[in-house]
Design a protein around this nucleic acid. Structure first.
Length: 236
DNA sequence: CCCTGATTCGC
DNA sequence: GCGAATCAGG
């Protein structure tokens, strides 16, 4: 498999959309997550909250320049001396990296009880739960779709006269203002994105925010597995 | 263990 | 440029 324009576009969008490398790789098919990560980096895509990169040790040049006798790497093709010449200083203001991804807003109303273990870590989307400023308080599978009163989707201007056929929101049509909820699966002929105006502050429109940011219900009380973008098995 | 992303480096 | 192997934190 090669990185065609389309595949790269998909990778980029999904990566920025918060999908994990595994999900992306799975979706693209024919590539490993390593390939996805590697490509993402090569593309210059910034790294999203990575578990291994939480903090940044501000100690440049701390690798013994002497001669590390031990180096029992299973795959020692070429030792990495990491020279680090002339570095006697190293002592700056701890500019604690502040990633703060533009997306993935995690709001927690004061009154909310955070006692939801949140099972199923691999739900298919960045684990975002609870609510968002716009409203769409936790929805249960039962009342799905029903309560979406807050944040009325104001349609000030008919930016999209025909919100369907004809002009589907393609990967390239995405911007910060349109809902990037995927419709179908990348690569398929009619794959497109919602394209509706987003709920301010979120990557999705109000309706899809309601689906994306759902609070998990206690085990057992869960019924219809809500379709998630880039999520489970292909369903159409 | 599983997961995650980061990095290295032979190809 | 690509991605397996590897690393390393959660």
């Amino acid at each position: 498999m090669s990185w065609t324009e389309e595949r790269i576009a998909t990778l980029t969008k999904m990566w920025e959309g918060g999908a994990t490398a595994s999900q992306i790789a799975d979706e693209l098919g024919g590539v490993s997550r390593n390939a996805v990560i590697g490509k993402a980096h090569r593309l210059g895509l910034k790294s999203r909250p990575s578990p291994v990169k939480a903090n940044e040790v501000k100690d440049t040049a701390k690798k013994e320049a002497a001669a590390p006798p031990i180096k029992a790497k299973p795959r020692p093709k070429a030792p990495t001396p990491t020279p680090a010449p002339s570095s006697t200083e190293a002592q700056e203001s701890p500019a604690a990296a502040a990633p703060a991804p533009a997306s993935a807003p995690v709001a927690r109303p004061a009154g909310e009880t955070p006692s939801q273990p949140l099972p199923e870590p691999r739900a298919g989307m960045p684990k975002i739960v609870s609510v968002g400023p716009g409203g769409f308080l936790r929805q249960g599978p039962g009342d799905q779709q029903a309560p979406i009163p807050p944040a009325p989707p104001r349609r000030l201007v008919p930016a999209r006269p025909s919100p369907e056929i004809a002009d589907k929101t393609s990967l390239l049509d995405l911007n910060d203002r349109v809902c990037r909820w995927p419709m179908g699966h990348p690569g398929e002929p009619d794959f497109h994105f919602c394209g509706e105006k987003v709920n301010p502050g979120f990557p999705y429109c109000v309706e899809h925010c309601g689906r994306a940011y759902q609070a998990q219900l206690p085990r057992g009380a869960r019924r219809p597995p809500p379709p998630l973008p880039f999520g489970g098995p292909r369903v159409r």
